[in-house]
Design a protein around this nucleic acid. Structure first.
Lengths: 119, 119
DNA sequence: AGCTTATACCTGGAACCACGAGGCATGGCA
DNA sequence: TGCCATGCCTCGTGGTTCCAGGTATAAGCT
């Protein structure tokens, strides 16, 4: 994110998109989120903790998430929830994602026509 | 590409996927390819030359592309075409792409159910 | 003739991200 | 007691994208 000059930040930023989406459904803590991503993607996505925690911190620093520390059975958990600006960010990210998928799909299905060449 | 430990190389690697696909339809030279991507994606994707040329060189070094230099109207063009291993690489990349899109889509549409939490 | 734009190639370096590896601490179970 | 799961975290590396810039020819405009 952050940058995205000519193209929106499609390629990377999938972890971010996924985190925002899952947290918008239900507040979760990091470790739970890592497992939730695996489950709800049908094992299609497996981001390690080393990928997710930095995203969580980054999003919180941006104000897209807020956190609350909880003590549960001697375990310390940091529960994250999506803020109002975070929800806006989610919808923007989702829109950008769909645009990219659409564009790639268009190319993948293009039938050799549609791009007459310039030569 | 190249790596892809737990997750296949989805997020990035879009330029690579697109290049392989377009060249599999018709051999092109770099500059032409840059324009073709814009056109055939419906302006959804706009990779600059600084993004595309390195991809071209990398893919050729890997053996996925072969090139031929041509002189046209005083202009020197390097025309690329997809090799046999390149075609295989394309189908693998496309498959990986579809898996990722499917996984993300599943999460985006997940209805809060499906991931009962582990806490 | 001179200037700008389009064509056509290319690289260097910065910025950024994903992720493996590793570290620390507690609880539960065999 | 030992080991695994839970739960948090960061550092370093590798890889990719991409902006900026550089070179050179052709074509169009005034």
């Amino acid at each position: 994110m952050t940058r995205g000059r000519t193209n929106p930040d499609f390629l990377n930023g999938v972890p971010e998109l996924v985190v925002l989406r899952l947290l918008s459904q239900r507040p979760m803590y990091g470790y739970e989120l890592v497992k939730a991503i695996e489950q709800s993607s049908g094992q299609g996505l497996e981001f390690g903790e080393g990928s997710i925690y930095p995203v969580l911190h980054r999003l919180e620093a941006e104000g897209a998430l807020s956190s609350r520390r909880m003590e549960v059975a001697g375990r310390s958990r940091v529960v994250y929830r999506v803020t109002v600006p975070g929800k806006r960010k989610l919808s923007e990210a989702l829109e950008a994602w769909r645009r990219v998928v659409g564009a790639v799909e268009r190319i993948m299905e293009s039938d050799e026509h549609g791009s007459p060449a310039l030569a």
